[in-house]
């Protein structure tokens, strides 16, 4: 299964990237294919393309602030959690995904 994700935290210096790294790692162990976009102090990185989003069954938003360019995800099933969830218990986020 393909998943896309966005991470974003208030200062965009540290947690955005920690959460991204964590989601990538856990997804891999669970056998999901994932692409994580970071919205931090460097702006949007590893940006999700229209194609990425269209192919994904789920979008995970691990964010503490509003997602930029939210309209890209219209029509996609979104699981939104506070960013800390991605650090605290990433497995529970993936558990919400019903194939």
């Amino acid at each position: 299964m393909k998943i896309v994700a966005v991470t974003a935290c208030p200062t965009g210096i540290a947690h955005t990237y920690m959460a991204a790294a964590r989601l990538e790692k856990v997804a891999k162990t669970l056998g999901f294919e994932i692409k994580v976009e970071t919205q931090g102090a460097m702006g949007i990185e590893n940006k999700l393309t229209e194609n990425d989003i269209r192919q994904a069954q789920f979008a995970i938003f691990a964010v503490d602030i509003a997602v930029e360019e939210r309209e890209r995800f219209n029509g996609v099933k979104v699981i939104q959690v506070p960013l800390q969830e991605a650090l605290k218990d990433p497995h529970s986020i993936f558990a919400k995904i019903q194939p």
Binding site: I13, A14, T16, Y17, M18, A20, A21, A41, E45
Partner: peptide, 8 residues
């Protein structure tokens, strides 16, 4: 910084 965050 992001490299450090990811590595941690």
């Amino acid at each position: 910084f992001s490299r450090l965050a990811r590595k941690l």
